[in-house]
Design a protein around this nucleic acid. Sequence first.
DNA 1: GACGAATTAGACAAGAGTGTCTAAATTTAT
DNA 2: ATAAATTTAGACACTCTTGTCTAATTCGTC
Lengths: 229, 229
Amino acid sequence: MKANASPDTIPPRGHEAKRISIMEAAGEVFCRESFAGANIDMIAAEAGVSRQTIYNHHGDKEKLFVAIVRDLTERCNAGIFATISTFPDQPKDLEADLIAFAVRMNRNCVCNRDGKFLRKLIQTEGERYPELFAEWREQGPGRTWPAIAARFARLAHAGFLDIDDPDVAARQFLALANAELQTTFMLGGTPDDDEVLQSATHGVRTFLRAFGKRQPAADAQKHSALAGA
Amino acid sequence: MKANASPDTIPPRGHEAKRISIMEAAGEVFCRESFAGANIDMIAAEAGVSRQTIYNHHGDKEKLFVAIVRDLTERCNAGIFATISTFPDQPKDLEADLIAFAVRMNRNCVCNRDGKFLRKLIQTEGERYPELFAEWREQGPGRTWPAIAARFARLAHAGFLDIDDPDVAARQFLALANAELQTTFMLGGTPDDDEVLQSATHGVRTFLRAFGKRQPAADAQKHSALAGA
DNA sequence: GACGAATTAGACAAGAGTGTCTAAATTTAT
DNA sequence: ATAAATTTAGACACTCTTGTCTAATTCGTC
């Protein structure tokens, strides 16, 4: 059946290409038109594929939708964890490093294609597929918030920050980082690099005014003289 | 035609009752099902009205939708300005007063029925009706952000806060105030009073750590001893 | 109680979308 | 080249929805 001369269980090749372009097109269309407003012919046209092929691959519209959301959830979480792993645990310049982190977070997880799509699909159809989005909630916010909070806790413990509740601080950090992008998000727009940087810069400055060490001792005095390593 | 014995231009009574229940039901259904997913029979049933009555009142589905959004926009803006007018210009207890304001803002403008509906409709259908939502943008964020910023500027000028850019501060204030409500919003939920208070309290505390006067003079020393009036 | 306006239920045509089926064309690997 | 699998276009039945129409009923008012 499936065990050919090919090395592993991967099925034929052209298949996969079709599958991918269907997934991409479907994400785009579901996102733009909502589940009810999307129709299979639209997706087929956008994917450059015949309608029947979509039915061959995914069975029906609902199964296709679920597959899309699962796929997006997975990819987004991977991206978020990859970005979290770049958190500045040993910052040279705390402000600059946190700004850069906030920019990465926004660019790679919030403003990118997958992030935008997943967010919109969750908001639009979340109530209709409770268990699907419960899954997202557990895998996403349920694991990413604590991960970020742990990084901030470590930073505080190392004496770089003055934080009472790392969970609260983590949520506020991200809220501040995209405080100025909200209106753009509302209408489905994508902030450009400049807006992202602006928002991150203002957000991190405020964050540090709130949680930065007042007069650390001697070494965390920043932004006047740069003592290179 | 319309000038009966009745005092002013208000048409018959039962009419208005129907109109209102149609508007309410339509808001609910459009919001729950999205424009494409909503159907007139659903709205009619939910409004306790016959399908034909909806067509009599609003012409067609699209006109009905536009009417709903216009109505929500108007009501929401009214609510926001009413709430802004309760901003603590002469705070007795800055932290407590700002928390109370943040709670009012969230409860009356963000978490209430109209706020939830308008936000979801904008996110879901915003791209499909550019001019309708441009209108919202001008009347809403375009006028409310500056209004709030002006209040913060005044507070800063009066010596209660240490703010560089009131526009940034205003956006960050609101971002902080509902930083902890985001996940709930995502799935269409409504935060309860406790969550709102928590989020506002944490948000305002952080806001004041960032923008509060460090050592004002003698009176703003809080949260250790309570000097009753 | 009677009048006119508004509402109602139901039927209706027209259109759009889903999911299935078939036979031809194309791809992939042997 | 040949055989198997996949894709394709098109037709199809079926369902759902929109928006119109009609005739009967209800409502508000005088």
